[in-house]
Structures are given as C-alpha cells and as structure tokens.
Design a protein around this nucleic acid. Structure first.
Length: 220
DNA sequence: GCGACAG
DNA sequence: ATCTTGTCGC
C-alpha cells in the first residue's frame, strides 16, 4: 500500500475521535495560528487574544524546514508540525484554536482543523477561504447571510460573507465544539474580512518570511 | 476515465 | 502558499 493510502487510513481512523459537542469550560483565550513559507522554510505564528476585547496578549513564532509537500486533502501533514510547535510556545494553553483550513468540510470529514484538535486535544474551528468539499445549500430564511454547506446531505459547515469582504469564508467544526457555536464565535471575532486571531497570525507569519528575504538580499 | 482540489 | 505590474474600485 502506498504512502498516501496509509495517511488516508489514518484520517479515516482518527475521524472517529472528533467531538462535535460544546466544551464545558468557558472560552476566554482564543488562539489563531497560521503558517507561511519561504523556499524550504516554514514560519508559523500563534496569537492569543482575550475573546472579550480581541487584543493580542501573547505571540509565539517558530521556523523550521518544510517536511511535506502541499497535496489537497493532506494539508495537515504539511502544516501540523509548525502549528504544534508555535502553539506549544505560548505561555497558556488555548481554550480554542482557530485554524486556517477546513475541519469537517473535507472528503474524509477530517480536515486540518480536526487533525490539530484531536492530536492536541484542544477545541478547534476550521476557517477557509475556498471550498474543498461540499455543496452550498439555499440560505435559510432568517439566518443572516450564512449558507449551509452539506456533504452527502448532512450540514457540515457554513459559508458566510463577513463585513468588508466580497467572497465568503467557510466555517466548520474542528474538534470539541458544535457547528452553531463555531459559527457564532467566528462572527463575534470578525471585525473585517476574517476572524481577528487569524488575521493577526497571518500578518505575523508572513512578515517573518519577508524579513528572511531582506536578510538574504532578495529583490524588493 | 475525467475533473476538481484547503494552504 | 508564493511568484508578480499594473490596474480597477471604494
């Protein structure tokens, strides 16, 4: 059996561990984590903020060699090492992790947000800019612009157009949270375009790669 | 077999 | 994700 087939087997095994019930503990520290690349190096940033004011409280960054290529539906095997390392450098354990990429909106119902959540045993939400799997349903009456996304007839996520953005973002459960709560928290943490923890994490991780370019004298 | 395909 | 100039629009 090939390498990717083995990884697919692992996904199909671990998907049974995903929990979609809300956690008991209240959510105070929300962490956004994102990864950027420069050549064969990856840079990850984890940003922790208090849910009540969305002000960054702590930041952790790492960089290291890229160990896996980008292959659609296997994103976690590329990004998990960086995510894990950055999150573990934070002074406090996150109450909730926001991941750039899908959770249950995945062909195996086990996208990177589920992968990170299960392996770190932390509640996670998947937030992505493009759809990978699933079908957009008609907007239900009353729901503010959020459209359900279904896989095999089951709602696994929502497409939502945040203020200040023209295209939707896609929200799905990663681990230890309900889809409704995930959607609510995404709305509450979005000021413009994308949830604040992810916006800041993205900005920081990308700044790290830019800094690397300057060091090496790459043209600007 | 063909097309589509998170970051 | 990253590479990349100008260009359209608020």
């Amino acid at each position: 059996m090939g390498f990717l087939e083995r990884l697919r087997e692992e996904q199909n095994r671990l998907v049974a561990d995903v929990r979609e019930e809300d956690d008991d503990r209240p959510i105070k520290w929300i962490v956004g984590v994102d990864v950027s690349y420069h050549g064969d190096q990856m840079y990850a940033a984890a940003v922790s903020m208090d849910k009540s004011d969305l002000e960054p409280v702590s930041v952790a960054t790492i960089h290291g060699p890229v160990g896996f290529p980008y292959i659609p539906t296997y994103l976690a095997y590329r990004e998990f090492p960086g995510i894990e390392a950055a999150v573990s450098r934070l002074p406090d354990r996150p109450d909730l992790l926001m991941i750039d990429g899908h959770g249950r909106l995945h062909p195996t119902l086990f996208g990177i947000a589920c992968h990170v959540g299960v392996r770190l045993d932390i509640p996670t939400i998947g937030i992505a800019k493009h759809l990978l799997a699933g079908r957009l349903e008609r907007s239900p009456a009353g729901q503010g612009s959020a459209r359900p996304v279904s896989i095999q007839g089951r709602v696994q996520g929502y497409a939502w157009i945040p203020p200040g953005r023209s295209r939707p973002i896609f929200v799905s459960v990663g681990h230890r949270i309900s889809l409704e709560t995930a959607a609510k928290i995404v709305r509450e943490t979005t000021r413009q375009g994308y949830p604040e923890p992810l916006r800041v994490a993205d900005r920081i991780s990308r700044a790290l790669t830019k800094g690397e370019k300057r060091k090496k004298g790459v043209a600007r």
